[in-house]
């Protein structure tokens, strides 16, 4: 089990929720958790994963503060209590 935190416009697509608690089993991946999240919050469909099941360009998914693009992507294994954070494209200055 762990927390998925949502930011910026993703919150409105998740019924206004900032975080969603997801239960995952030993051996689960971040991809599994995101698919579970989307099943519970269908408004997120197409905004985190594309039609091929890959992360939408410029969307950032972090596990414990590390971008999964620098880990094993959607195959990154989850540990109990991990915190997932998902951002739509963000930049500024």
């Amino acid at each position: 089990m762990g927390i998925v935190r949502l930011y910026a416009a993703l919150r409105a697509r998740a019924d206004g929720e900032r975080e969603v608690e997801i239960v995952w089993s030993p051996g689960a991946t971040v991809g599994d958790a995101i698919r579970d999240l989307i099943a519970r919050k269908p408004g997120l469909a197409g905004h985190i994963l594309d039609a091929r099941g890959q992360v939408v360009p410029y969307v950032a998914v972090f596990i414990e503060g590390r971008d999964i693009r620098h880990l094993d992507g959607l195959r990154t294994a989850l540990a109990a209590g991990d915190e997932i954070a998902i951002f739509p494209p963000v930049a500024g200055g």
């Binding site: 951002f87 494209p89 963000v90 500024g92």
Partner: peptide, 20 residues
């Protein structure tokens, strides 16, 4: 629609905090 347009530059606060 984009984060910069909707929230301004301060859309960064949570992401820089998230990554330490």
């Amino acid at each position: 629609k984009g984060g910069l347009s909707v929230y301004g530059t301060n859309v960064l606060m949570n992401v820089t905090n998230t990554i330490g």
